[in-house]
Structures are given as C-alpha cells and as structure tokens.
Design a protein around this nucleic acid. Structure first.
Lengths: 344, 344
DNA sequence: CTGAAAGCGCTTACAG
DNA sequence: CTGAAAGCGCTTACAG
C-alpha cells in the first residue's frame, strides 16, 4: 500500500500512448541517439500529454545512478553552525547541483550518530557520490569513504589523503598576506587568534602567520598566539588573554573571532586601529558592517561549493579516468579601516 | 555497469548464509513479529557477518517508502541566507531526522528553477514527504503540494491552507509583547522596522506592533512604520529613514534588522537606549553580543524543526488518520540593555 | 532504429 | 512460521 493514491503515469503508460515499447521511451528520456526522429517526437508528445516524470528511485535501482549527491558536514560543536560559512557552502553546492539536475542529501554528522551516518552515506545506495566538508585532521569518515570506494570530494585539503580530490582556499597564503600587510604598516607586536589546531584550515592559517613573521625576519612570540574555536565568543576570550601582552595588531583566523576581538578591545578601552589593528578571515557580510569595518581575507565559499560539485561529477562521469585533482583558490585581502594604514 | 565495483551483499546473500528465503530475511529486517526466534537469530548473525545493509533505493521502490524527507527552503533573495534562521532550521530538522533514521534531501528553491524543483520534489519518488519553510503568502509550491497530495508540513502558518499541518512561532504575540514592553517603559514614539509584508511572519509581527499600540490606546503613526527585508543592511537603511521622525524606540522584526538599526543610530550619534530603545526578534547569538546587548523576542527555531519532523512522520505513519495540526509556540521576551528600563 | 526479456534489490500478498 | 512468486518502475545488453 503506497501513501500516494492517485497513480502517476509510468513508462508503460507513455509507451502505450506513443505506440512504442518501454525500451524506446527509455531511450528517448535518456537522450539515446539511436531513435528515429519521428518516433522521438511522438514519445515526447506523449510524455508531455501525460505529464510523465521518470521515477528516480526506479531509475536509480536499475542504473545504479540516483542523480543525488551527498553532503556531509561535521557538525562538531553546534556553535560551528553560527558561522555563515556552512550556510553559504550549502547554498553553493545546492545551486550547482540543481543547475545540473542533481539533488542533494544532507547529513550533519553528529558525533554520537557518527557510525550510523557513515552507514547511511556509504551503504544506502541513495547517493552517487559525496562531498565532505572535512575540517578535522582525523575525521574517520574519510577512511571509510576511501575503503568503500565511494566517489567523493573534500572541501578543504587533507594532507593524509592525496588520492581524494579536494577544493580549498589557499589558507596559508591568505594568512601570510594578512600578516605581511600588518608588518608593512609598521606593526611590530602582531598577535594571532587561531582556529582549533586539529582543523586543517586552522593549522594552515596559523602556519601562514608564522611564515609571514619569518619572511620579515621576526620570530614569533608564543605569548602572542592564542588558540580559539572559530566563534565570536571564543575570539572575545582569546583577545582578553592577549591584552596583557600588549599586541599592536591581531590576525584572527576567522571574521567571527575577529568580531569577538573587536568587542574585547572596545571593552578594554583600546582603539581600533590606532592602538590595535585587526584583520579577520572569510570576509563574511558582517565584516564590512563592523565598527570599524573589518579588513579581511576574502575567500569565495560559493566557488568552493560549485567547484566541489564539478569535480565530483567529472568523477562520476567516468568517461575519462582522471586522477585526483586538487583545486586551490587564492584568497584576496580586502583592506578596510580596522587595520589602519590608508585604505584608499 | 555500475560505478561501485565490489559487490555489496544483498538479500540473497544473507538468505543463503542463513539458510532461509529472502522473504524471511526481509521480515527480520523489518521487524515482522511472524518469525521464529531461532530463525531470527540466525538471520541477524548472517547480517552481521556479511555486514549487510539493505539498499534503500530498492526498498523504496518496492515499498513506496524511502525514509527520506524533503526540505524546501525558498531562497528568494540570496541575502536571506545570511540570517542564521535557516542554518538553525536545517540543523533542527536534520537532527530530528537522523535520530529517527530518516535522511533529508534539501532544495533551495531558486525562483528560476522553481518549476524544476517542484517537479523533483513532487514526482521524483525520492521522498516520502516534505517540510516547506514557506514564507511567502503566495508561494506556488504549496498549491502544487496539495494537489499532488504530497504529505507535508509547513514551517510558518499559512492562512490560505488550513488543511496543511504547520508549526509556527506566535509571531503576533511576540511582537505585541515587545512593543507593550516599550510602552510600559514610557516610550511614546515607538517605531517599527517590519519584514517584507508579503511574508507571513513579516505581516504577523507588524500586526503585533499595531495591536500593542491599540491595546495601550495609541494610534499608529504611519511615518514610524518602515518596511524592510530582514537583512542588516535593510535595517540600517530603514533606521535612517526613521531618524527624521524622532522615534524614541524601535521594534525591529528581526535581530539582523535590529543590529542594522543599532549601527544607524550609532552613526547618527544617538545613544541606545537613552535616546532610542531597540528590540529585535529571534534572539540569535549575535543579539546578546551586540553593544548594547539587544533585547529580543526569542523563538526556538530548533524546536520548530523538531516539531515539523514529528508532525510529518505522524502523517506518514498513517496508522491513525489525523487531521491537520497547527502547533504554535509562544516566544519569550529576553530583556537586555538595548531597551532601557532596568534589566534585573 | 526497435522490441522482448532479464535484471536492479527489495516487499508483500498468497498459500501452505 | 515460512517460501515461491509477482511486482515496484526503470535500464540495458541482446537480437533483429
């Protein structure tokens, strides 16, 4: 007993209406060139008359392809979701998919349901491939994906798995450019508020900070490096920790943390950028609206999403066997008032 | 030719291993009581040995149930997505689903792909039911859903369709409470920045504003009502429009707009709450972090999500035929510094 | 260019 | 309590 009572037309109905076999209707739907033009006409008109839509589930079972992509986001701390990053990523992926007539299935990987999620993703037969926004260096799902040979693309590079295609922002260069900018403006006690160091983006942005200092011939002062968690509240606390060490600039590894730092500085009675220059990362909408407007390293999260879909679909296409591809997008420094200097 | 080369065990494999028929294995998997306890044992152990996972696509085709729910979000203006509302809603729904062993398929309804999306949602056979975050009063997808008899639940009440189950925050009461609070504190020129009036929540919150004024014996001054778009930038512009009319308080229909208003007031050299009191709606994380902390009408978006899933699943369950249900959750006013008075 | 037939991996009356 | 068989709605070699 199905819930949906009135019957949708199926292949047989169309075949009957067009006076052909099911095979032929199937060929027409799938754009098989081996169909007589006139026949094709008749079939299409039957399809339109009946308002026929192929059942994707049946098609999926028969062909092994469902035209559905999975998207796995490691929810981790619930607070992570307060960052617009994920909303935009979802948006970018969803848009790219619907343009290509794919649908997307979403899993927010809660730690406690981890195993069940992995099972659903891998063994359900529901999806053709999966995009994983993998942040953690040791995410167990990745190994499972590889073992199962599930076609997949990671958003965010993953040093341990060069065999998987990835898309990523060049976090290291972005961070390096930001810190170099601060040093060029004459700041000498440049601090950083990092993301969690078990997240690759967090580690990369921190590495960029260190490199920029080294480039300029400085050595990093450990007291000026505070690890935080990519949240506003975390940025606030980190800044409070930094204040006693009198930084004259701060590079925060995310805008949310930079906004938190701004708030802490304000509460501490320090002026931005006069006393302390601040630069964030991501260039979320709130950055331009901050007071003062926040200088930030802009990455296009939308582009990451689009690109991930593209890579996954080429993999699924399979017409040409391709090795893994690693796309790295250069971020750009968007200079606003918070870092001082003279933003043109 | 399927992409996944190594074969997963299927029902037949399990049946063979356990020395029973496919039917029996199927019964065991589906918890059919009509199975001998010993047989059940043997089957389960075969399942575990082979690490068998039922193919959901096949199951979906055979049973007409895929254990997948759809979630449709009318993207409308892309900026809408800058509001944490949707991220949290997605989160709430996703969490509830995975707890119940359902998966969720996501569609961001872009206007230009509208028809295609509707088709996918309705006719793909991929989902058992759908949750629609319907904001627009005249969203065409709703009529299509009804006509197709697709089980569905709306997040956000919809006056034109009482036959569809809904979950909603009591927007009117929330707004009314906020404005009443401002009036009690002695404010006399209370303005409002509304959401789009073709969105039901926008209209409801505006109605709440008007009612509160009426309750207190005031009549609304049209110059103190400005329609905006639920974004920060929109709130900023709306506040600028209001300034010449010298409001002494503003109720913004969303926190994002309230934050924009705060920014406009600051730029205009006005003090909050001394010169102008401000109250927002939603109580997003940023509200408590604003300067001054923002008084806001708190709704639990997570709860809306959970509740929507629950309602949809009872509908799908179908063991008892139920009429539509309309769950309305009362929001609560969270008083902080931005509205003046003396927040305990 | 077209059709008959097998098959994708399940579920579900129907018999027993 | 169990199995043989039909069926869900497609795709896809295989013949012709």
């Amino acid at each position: 007993m199905t819930l949906q009572t009135h019957n949708r037309p199926n292949l047989v109905a169309v075949a009957k209406a067009a006076g052909v076999s099911r095979s032929t209707v199937s060929r027409v739907i799938n754009d098989d060139p081996n169909v007589n033009a006139a026949t094709r006409e008749r079939v299409w008109s039957a399809i339109h008359t009946l308002d026929y839509q192929p059942n994707r589930v049946a098609r999926g079972l028969a062909s092994g392809r469902t035209q559905v992509l999975g998207l796995v986001i490691p929810q981790g701390v619930a607070t992570l979701f307060s960052d617009p990053y994920f909303a935009i990523l979802i948006q970018g992926i969803s848009t790219a998919c619907s343009r290509l007539d794919y649908s997307v299935m979403l899993w927010l990987a809660e730690p406690d349901h981890e195993r069940r999620t992995i099972h659903q993703v891998l063994h359900g037969g529901l999806i053709d491939g999966v995009i994983v926004s993998s942040m953690l260096a040791d995410d167990p799902i990745i190994a499972a994906l590889v073992e199962r040979r599930m076609p997949c693309v990671l958003v965010g590079r993953h040093p341990d798995h060069p065999e998987i295609s990835t898309v990523d922002t060049d976090n290291l260069s972005g961070a390096r450019a930001a810190v170099t900018h601060l040093l060029r403006l004459g700041r000498r006690r440049v601090a950083t508020i990092t993301g969690p160091q078990n997240m690759i983006a967090g580690a990369d942005r921190c590495a960029g900070y260190s490199l920029a200092l080294r480039d300029a011939g400085f050595s990093a002062d450990p007291a000026l490096i505070v690890e935080s968690d990519f949240t506003e509240a975390g940025g606030y606390r980190a800044m409070q920790q930094l204040l006693p060490h009198h930084p004259d600039a701060v590079f925060a590894a995310s805008d949310l943390m930079a906004l938190g730092a701004l708030r802490a500085l304000q509460h501490g009675g320090l002026r931005v950028p006069e006393d302390v220059a601040v630069i964030g990362f991501d260039d979320i909408a709130a950055a331009a609206l901050a007071d003062p407007p926040l200088t930030s390293v802009r990455q296009s999260i939308q582009q990451l999403g689009h690109s991930a879909v593209e890579l996954l679909l080429t993999q699924l296409d399979g017409s040409r066997i391709t090795g893994p591809e690693h796309r790295v997008f250069p971020p750009t420094l968007v200079v606003r008032r918070s870092c001082g200097g003279d933003p043109a």
